[in-house]
Design a binder for these strands. Structure first.
Lengths: 129, 129
DNA sequence: ATGATATATGCGTCTATGCGCAACTAAGCA
DNA sequence: TGCTTAGTTGCGCATAGACGCATATATCAT
C-alpha cells in the first residue's frame, strides 16, 4: 500500500494541497515563480514541494528556458482520477485567495509565456544584499 | 485547508489505509479484535489508529458490551464521498490478504455478533505471563 | 567570459508521529 | 466482591518531515 500512502502523505501538507488545487483549477501549466506569487510562500519552499509532488507521481514538469512549468500528471488509473476529483471538490472559499493572486500574476504573461521571476521579493528566500 | 490535509495525513499510514479499505469492502461494522486479526497488527496499535481516524471524521464507533464496532462515517460532503471512492478503487491485489483474513475471522461471529477477542495471541501487545 | 535570473538542493533544527510497553478503564461473570 | 476480557491511553524512544538559510546549477543577456 505504500504506493498509495505516499500519495496521501504528499497531499497532507497545506502548501502541496494548494499547489495541486491551483494547477487543477488553472487548467494550464504554471511555472515556479507564478506559484510562489500566488501562494505567497518562499521560493525554495515551493520548489521543494513541487519536486516532491513530481517524485510522488502527482505532477509532471517541462523546462523551457530558465523556467520550469508544472502541471498535474495525466491520471492514468482510477485511483488518481478520483483523488483529483476529490481535491477539485474542496469548497471554493478555501482556494479563493490563491486563485485571485494567480489571476493577477497571469496578467504578466505575454503570448502565454512567463517572462519574469518572483515579483514578491520577500518570498525569494534570500535575506540580505 | 488544514481540515483537508488532516484527512490526507490520516490516510498516509498503511495500517490506517488498510483499515478504511477493509471497512469499505466489508459493508458492515467491524470490532477492534476483528480488525486486529485481519490486519495482523498489534491490538494497541489498531486501537490507536481507529481512534485517530474517528477523530479525523473518517470513522464512527458504536459500543456494544465489551466490544466497540467501527464503520466509515456517513460521507456528507462531496470531498469525502470522492475520497472514499478513490480508496475503494485501490486495486484488489493490495487488499486481497486482509480480506481473506477477515473472511476467516467473520466465521467466528454468531448471529452477526462478535463473541470473542483477538485470536492471534501474538498480536495482543502483551508480552509475558 | 561575466553577470543576472529562475530554479534546485544540502544542512541544521525543530516538531510531529509511529511504535512498543505498561498501566488503566469498563463491561460481564463467578 | 473479585477475576477475566475488550479496548484505551500515557510515556519514552526513534525516525521522518517541514522550514529557514545558504549555496549550487542552469540558462540567457550583454
Amino acid at each position: 500500500m505504500e504506493e498509495y500512502t505516499q500519495i496521501f502523505k504528499t497531499l497532507s501538507d497545506p502548501t502541496r494541497l494548494r499547489i495541486l488545487r491551483l494547477l487543477l483549477d488553472a487548467g494550464k501549466e504554471l511555472c515556479v515563480c507564478e506559484l510562489v506569487d500566488s501562494l505567497e510562500e518562499p521560493q525554495y519552499n515551493v520548489s521543494k514541494h513541487v519536486t516532491a509532488m513530481r517524485a510522488a507521481g502527482l505532477l509532471k514538469s517541462r523546462k523551457e528556458g530558465r523556467w520550469v512549468y508544472y502541471s498535474p500528471r495525466d491520471t492514468d488509473g482510477e485511483f488518481l482520477k478520483l483523488l483529483s476529483l476529490a481535491v477539485a471538490a474542496i469548497p471554493e472559499r478555501h482556494v479563493k485567495h490563491d486563485r485571485a493572486e494567480l489571476r493577477k500574476r497571469l496578467k504578466l504573461r505575454e503570448r502565454g509565456k512567463c517572462l519574469t521571476g518572483v515579483q514578491k521579493e520577500h518570498l525569494l528566500g534570500k535575506v540580505s544584499s
